[in-house]
Write a protein that binds this DNA or RNA. Sequence first.
DNA 1: TGATATTTGTGCGTATGTATC
DNA 2: AGATACATACGCACAAATATC
Lengths: 234, 234
Amino acid sequence: MSSATLWKTISDTILEDIASGHFSEGSKLPTEAELVRRFGVNRHTVRKSLAALADKGILRSRRGSGVYVAHPPTVYNMSDRVRFSQNLAEAGRTPSRKVLNLLTRKASREEAAALQLTPGAAVHHYEGISFGDSEPIALFQSVFCANRFPQLAKALEIQNSVTRALKNCGLKDYTRASTQIAAVAATPVQANHLLLKPGDPLIATKSVNVDEHDIPVEYGRSHFSGARVTLNYS
Amino acid sequence: MSSATLWKTISDTILEDIASGHFSEGSKLPTEAELVRRFGVNRHTVRKSLAALADKGILRSRRGSGVYVAHPPTVYNMSDRVRFSQNLAEAGRTPSRKVLNLLTRKASREEAAALQLTPGAAVHHYEGISFGDSEPIALFQSVFCANRFPQLAKALEIQNSVTRALKNCGLKDYTRASTQIAAVAATPVQANHLLLKPGDPLIATKSVNVDEHDIPVEYGRSHFSGARVTLNYS
DNA sequence: TGATATTTGTGCGTATGTATC
DNA sequence: AGATACATACGCACAAATATC
């Protein structure tokens, strides 16, 4: 064991603490300063140990907050009838939502094309973060034709569920017509929302949901945390 | 194109929202608390983003009220017949006035010289703030010969317009004879009135208005907010 | 007018990220 | 590997100005 470096030893010790349940999933590790005292080494050495575990996806650090134990990835099923809540419940996680922005505005060219509207038509803009067990899973941004669903904005304010809000506006069912998937790097703001670092990989999806007559009702864009989500087509 | 830091990214995002017309001139931005929710960052971070834009003159904050999109500099025409209200109306802004001081006193040496009076002659002192769309544009301070216009002080109390008050006192028309222009730093008091910071640049003007016989009737001094006004000679 | 809530301004302390010596 | 310094970011608390009823 003479070849083992100081930082590797510390890294292994922390790993054992996690494996033994001393530090559980999502919990906060002692601060770097505390670890410095505990192991009697320089802060750089502690940081190297933590960085090694963070690279493996075992730890996650947040500037100004602390270092945390990461969760294992969640499997997200991409069937033709995608329902966020149901999806996460199947994965054994408790779903929740945080609305960042909810307003009615004019559609961009891209949005108008996706919803088959005239450019500049009014749309409801619904934007927020999806959580599983209080951990951010994805950023979502959906637009709906305001003309077809005049009361949707208010319904979304109350309902906290797109499916239920649309049902309140008279839409019984909707299915996923098309989806584009890409991988992008997280912007600082995206990274912050998802508790990641800028540049971390995201799964970017663009999808159109249609009603029973194949008329588009929703154009949704999502950014999943690449480290915490695996998309599953089946 | 996300820049390095969080605050810079947020700053750029807000700038884009302004450029795209999402936030228009003079309109109120979401509160800091709302931006905190939307961007998911600490309030200090939001404030740093806003401060960066405020330093550029793009935003302006008012304690207890909110943060607003600043107007581009108002063009103030310095013709030979300057009328404040008309001037701002031409610039598409609603003019108003707030009188800070209205009294009759003895003229200083400088004032007596400008009005061609004997030193110590009585003058009406008229001082206040000019607004465009409720935004302070300039501080003004005018003196008039009290001997020639005995009722002017009362007229100014009622009229809220120098042109109309002078007309009530028998003066049909007056024109600008001379103007001196300088740039000075705002004193704390001036800055407070103009919603600026002490040391911010001001355009200081001194002008003499004369009647049809070239006899001085008004000696006016103004301090325009350098950030909000561009003087235009034509 | 006055009481209360909202919003911005400010300060202090703490934590992580990065760079240099 | 150690020591120091600075930048970025978070958390909390309170003051001051404004808005609202």
